[in-house]
Amino acid sequence: MGLVAIPTHAALGFALGRYFPSRFTAPLVTVALFFGQLFVGAQNAWYAFLSPMVSLNTSVWYGVRPDLTLQQVFFLLGLIGLLLASLPLRDQRNRAAGGASCLAAALVTVAGVAIIWHDAPPRGGQDLSRDERFRNRQVIPYQPVCRDAPMPVCVHPAYQPYLDETTAVINRLVAPVVGLPGVPTRAEQGYPAITGNTDATTLWFDIQPQAQYWEQLLTTSVLYPLTTQVVFMPADGNSRSGSVRNPCPSSNPGSCADAQQVIMRWLLRQTGLADDRYQVGPRFTDPAYDRITPTVERFAALDPAQQQKWLRAHFADLRAGKVRLEDLP
């Protein structure tokens, strides 16, 4: 649409320059168009789609939503026709031909606006409601790309550049528990609603790469969801929120068993990324954080063989919430 918007703006500038020939026309039209398309595109209304700068909901799973490209191009082409056809109207001799062309182009433009009005969601693109987002939407078929490792990791092919780093970090995270009874055997980007896979042997995570925050995003969108699934319970099969839902039994993290949080923080430390206060999120700034810190330090100071021995014996109970803080070595 942006490509068609350029000749449309040029046609508008040319037409206005013909009607109002002045040294100030070009700069004022340029600024007005730049501001106008930003202003219109920022509105939470159907007419935001008349601007090429409208916010759209995009994802590799569902594509661009709502995809009104054809309707927008139809509207812009009509506008180009209308603007150019209006030029001969200044000339007495061409007035009839110009009027007819103008009328035809005006009809196309109005039809374009009407179709956009009909097809656009009432509150614009970025603000799609949950229902609008998922109604009649099929996931774009894809074949995940995987990397073999003690815990194999699969991602959407669009995220292949992040696969190696993600695999390395995930395997550092789960290394102490991989192979223990009940622990999932593979990790995959996505969530059950997309992949249709609801078995408990898969850990779910999402990747939301933004170059400068890559490490933070890796922590919040990959490691934290994975750790909660490893330590607490399998992911909720109904989750379809884009990132894996926190499967903690209550929305208050402090209500989860302290012993589980100890092991969770210890696992997060294995990745060597950031300090575990950040890794478990700002919500964990409750008194439980300080209360369990000595136990985390004590467990971390144990010999790896002792840690393994304890995990093998107690990990199933830990996941079930049956291990108390004082039971930890």
């Binding site: 004022l28 600024v31 730049f34 501001f35």
Partner: peptide, 13 residues
């Protein structure tokens, strides 16, 4: 964005 317009007018003048 809109202060660009007076600047453009002054430049063009």
């Amino acid at each position: 964005v809109l202060p660009l317009a007076p600047a453009a007018v002054i430049g063009a003048s």
